[in-house]
Amino acid sequence: MMELRRLRILQELHAEGTVAGAARALHLTPSAVSQQLAVLGREAGVPLLERHGRRLRLTAAGQVLLKHADAVAAQLETARSDLAAYADGRLGVERAGGFPSAIVLLLAPAAAALRRTHPDRRVEISEVETEVALPMLVRGELDIVVVMSSAKLPAADDPRIRLVELMVDPQDAALPAGHRLAGEEQVDLAALAGEDWVAPLPGTACREVLEAGCRQAGFQPRIMHGATDFSAALALVACGLGVTLIPRLIGSAGTAGVTVRPLTGPRVPVRLLYAAVRRGSGPTPLLSALCAHAATL
């Protein structure tokens, strides 16, 4: 009989590609992961894994079993959701995660609203970036995460994660107050092609949004400074060291020396914000509160 924990190890091996990576994700030793995978292979009666260079990948039979493992995980999530609904959402805890501005704009207000409607339900919030939040969600370390549009987002039919769109947040140009375009009502992104840029760090979803927007405007930004924290980025802009893009919901927060202007052009860059939950989970009090608050912004 196949055990759920071995199917979970198979899922993580597929996601990580190596025994060591799966072991780190599951807080196990590599030898324990290897032993459990060997047992699973014997239970299945067919080879589930094959070596591909220095990595392991699933055989065709392993891919078949993976689909069933994903389906079992989703069904278990449905069972948890049904049990939570049975309790009417009045008890329990939801562990949420999101990047800093998602906490400020969405998670914190939604959690505050939930305290009024479900005073016995606890919400635990952690700061975590999109590229880290999704694996934590799959592993069950978080129950709901707010993420932004990124190449790392799962497809709509992903068997493990369900995305619920919360809102569309346009990007605006943040310019030094004395910039040549600071007096314009709107700024064409293409007009900033020759500028020095302040950009989020590589590998982040915010960096993807900025670079994709510039490419659509016909240029590659000349990135001189890196800062993922928006207050740090705006400080660099205020000192005249470059320009940047900033989500409209964040704005400049009154940063002295910074002028924020809406962008114009055929395709204004935006970031899409989603609530991500495990496939099979139903509506929860926090998810409902998040959607309700996002609709007011």
Score class of each variant (00 low, 15 high):
182 A>I: 06
170 P>D: 06
164 V>I: 13
129 E>L: 14
104 V>W: 11
162 R>N: 06
168 V>K: 13
141 E>C: 07
191 A>Y: 09
166 L>H: 01
176 P>R: 01
187 V>M: 01
158 D>F: 04
189 L>T: 12
192 L>W: 02
155 A>V: 03
170 P>A: 09
155 A>L: 11
95 R>H: 05
124 E>K: 11
123 V>K: 02
202 P>H: 04
113 A>R: 15
99 F>A: 12
136 M>D: 12
195 E>S: 09
148 M>R: 13
149 S>T: 14
174 A>Q: 03
148 M>N: 11
186 Q>A: 12
175 L>R: 03
191 A>L: 11
152 K>T: 14
177 A>R: 13
180 R>V: 14
176 P>N: 04
208 E>N: 07
141 E>S: 13
120 D>H: 14
207 R>K: 04
104 V>F: 12
123 V>A: 06
172 D>T: 02
182 A>T: 10
201 L>E: 15
128 V>R: 06
181 L>D: 10
135 P>R: 08
124 E>T: 12
165 E>V: 00
151 A>S: 14
172 D>F: 03
195 E>M: 06
144 I>A: 07
174 A>R: 01
131 E>K: 07
182 A>E: 03
143 D>A: 05
133 A>L: 14
198 V>N: 08
178 G>K: 05
169 D>F: 03
205 A>H: 00
208 E>C: 05
172 D>G: 00
167 M>Q: 13
154 P>D: 09
165 E>P: 15
112 A>L: 13
169 D>W: 00
183 G>A: 14
158 D>R: 02
152 K>I: 05
155 A>W: 00
171 Q>V: 03
152 K>C: 12
183 G>K: 07
100 P>V: 02
176 P>G: 03
206 C>A: 13
169 D>I: 03
99 F>E: 13
126 S>I: 06
98 G>Q: 04
150 S>I: 07
198 V>M: 10
122 R>N: 05
200 P>Q: 08
125 I>Q: 01
182 A>G: 11
163 L>R: 07
159 P>M: 09
152 K>L: 12
105 L>P: 00
111 A>G: 11
109 P>V: 03
122 R>K: 11
182 A>F: 04
144 I>T: 13
186 Q>T: 15
94 E>D: 12
102 A>I: 06
181 L>G: 08
133 A>S: 14
116 R>D: 15
121 R>Q: 11
103 I>R: 15
200 P>L: 01
